[in-house]
Lab assay of single mutants.
Amino acid sequence: KVFVPPFKTKSHFHRVEQCVRNINLEENRQKQNIDGHGSDDSKNKINDNEIHQFNKNNSNQAVAVTFTKCEEEPLDLITSLQNARDIQDMRIKKKQRQRVFPQPGSLYLAKTSTLPRISLKAAVGGQVPSACSHKQLYTYGVSKHCIKINSKNAESFQFHTEDYFGKESLWTGKGIQLADGGWLIPSNDGKAGKEEFYRALCDTPGVDPKLISRIWVYNHYRWIIWKLAAMECAFPKEFANRCLSPERVLLQLKYRYDTEIDRSRRSAIKKIMERDDTAAKTLVLCVSDIISLSANISETSSNKTSSADTQKVAIIELTDGWYAVKAQLDPPLLAVLKNGRLTVGQKIILHGAELVGSPDACTPLEAPESLMLKISANSTRPARWYTKLGFFPDPRPFPLPLSSLFSDGGNVGCVDVIIQRAYPIQWMEKTSSGLYIFRNEREEEKEAAKYVEAQQKRLEALFTKIQEEFEEHEENTTKPYLPSRALTRQQVRALQDGAELYEAVKNAADPA
């Protein structure tokens, strides 16, 4: 009996079949050797039954030995992979106790070099992304696993290492050393996912494991997988089976570590959520998911006594290639979404967006559910497929024609109009009788001069009248001057009331 372990994989059965074929070849070789050395001598003659019994015993022994070898290899492979993971953990823990100096990766050096680079648009010959069927993509060489990738399942995607490095690299049990020196050690079933790439990135030279977390790596792994898979599906003739590979993924992860961690360069969404930049600038984002077409959003009224009003709005997920943020759509954008003119994977350019929800600054990976962008249809338009995601180089609003605006589409950043004729300025005056008088600039100047002159005359007449009244009042209130005199003690004692006392003090030479 042959024991088949439960962890036997498909590739292992192929190895067993190869072992059986080797056994058959060995039986034929032994039979030929016996036939060649046989003689007519009775002493050296061998019976056919004995030959059959001899071959049967040897074949059973060969099967036992061969199956033992074939079954020991998976056990040795699992042990070797576990040992490799333990050694990798030791290296990572050692790096956590040490000071790790930055070491730029090859992709970062290539992108920051001064050498001329070919743009993506030029690389594909100016073509637009194709909409091929699954059968056509498979014909071009795009794998079935790559075709099924979307923004939702990209984080759970796993590579089959045998498809990229062969069985020999897997059966060594030491892992695969990729670009920039990172070791990718697959799981026991030969797959490599987000956890394996997290360990590989931490093991890469120049990466400090204390500065990154699993959530950070898982997030970037998701967007990298989706981007590379979309590249192959959009341009299968040029990029089929060339973008989505373990080495390319680790290069992209190391580039993002060099950019965001070592160089402290943040993406647009991260700057906006951390309240270090405004969402009103011109942005280019990609639609990554349609969350809900009728979500209940509560809006607190300005009146504190009234309860919060709830309304149903559409919510989608937007990404700048590094992080994601939810976006709230207005009714015109909801209609565009339902008509199929706004789809997943499409790039949009927007201006004047507003970050609503929590007023506190937070990182994109720790954002609350209520935090989202509020965008309007009058400031949102489709962007070209090759436009770079993030802040647009020109932060000013983009012009829009009047015919493309919506009455309930929110604010308009800039309108593109043509002035056919400029009319002169006219002034309108409404009289006390209810009549309207229109004048041009010259007539208005004359009328203004007349008004100023009449106003000045009225002011002069009023001043003269007030002055005359004041002088008349002064004459009536002025009394004849009485010289001061000193009162004797008897006169002071003779004073009867306060009025006489006041007059005496007033007319005294020295009231003190």
Rank of each mutant, 00 (worst) to 15 (best):
G206V: 02
A314S: 12
F157S: 03
V207G: 03
P332R: 12
P129T: 06
A327P: 01
D163Y: 11
I224N: 03
V287G: 02
I269V: 11
Y257D: 00
S267L: 00
T387S: 12
G193V: 00
K270N: 07
N241D: 09
D330G: 05
Y221N: 00
N241K: 12
D416G: 04
Y198H: 07
L333F: 07
A229G: 08
A179T: 13
V412I: 12
N241T: 12
S379N: 14
G390V: 03
G340C: 08
P186H: 09
V249G: 03
D320V: 01
T204P: 00
V249L: 06
G181D: 05
P397S: 09
L251P: 04
R384H: 10
P205A: 07
L285R: 00
D86Y: 12
A229V: 05
A200P: 02
K95T: 11
L373I: 12
T319I: 03
L244P: 01
R384C: 05
Y255C: 08
L228M: 10
S407G: 11
G206D: 04
R421G: 01
W385L: 02
Q88L: 07
G105S: 06
E168G: 15
P205Q: 08
P424A: 09
G206A: 06
T112I: 11
R248T: 15
S151G: 10
D416H: 04
R117P: 08
G390R: 03
T259M: 09
D276Y: 09
A279V: 10
D320N: 00
R266S: 15
E274K: 06
R248S: 13
G352V: 04
K237T: 13
R91Q: 05
L250R: 03
E247K: 11
I224V: 08
L81H: 09
R242G: 08
L285P: 01
G410E: 06
P209Q: 05
L178W: 05
Y221D: 00
R222I: 03
Q158R: 13
R85S: 06
D320Y: 03
A327V: 04
G413C: 12
Y423C: 04
S292L: 12
T114S: 11
L109F: 10
R248G: 14
C243W: 07
V284F: 03
S379R: 15
G181C: 09
N241H: 12
C362G: 07
R341G: 15
A353T: 12
R117L: 10
K281E: 06
K254T: 01
L365P: 09
T259K: 11
S370C: 09
D258H: 06
L251V: 10
D203N: 07
D276G: 10
L244Q: 04
V207A: 05
M273T: 15
T114A: 13
L228R: 03
I118T: 10
K111T: 06
L244R: 03
N219H: 05
C362Y: 12
S404L: 06
W216G: 01
S302R: 13
Q158P: 03
L318R: 01
D309N: 14
K237R: 14
L211R: 15
W322L: 04
I272V: 08
Y323F: 04
V124A: 13
L253Q: 00
R256G: 04
E168V: 14
L250H: 06
N241Y: 08
A229T: 07
E196G: 04
E366Q: 10
W385S: 02
F159C: 04
G390E: 02
L250P: 00
A200S: 10
L244V: 11
L342V: 07
R99C: 14
L318H: 00
I87T: 12
S267W: 00
E238G: 07
K326N: 09
S113C: 11
L251R: 09
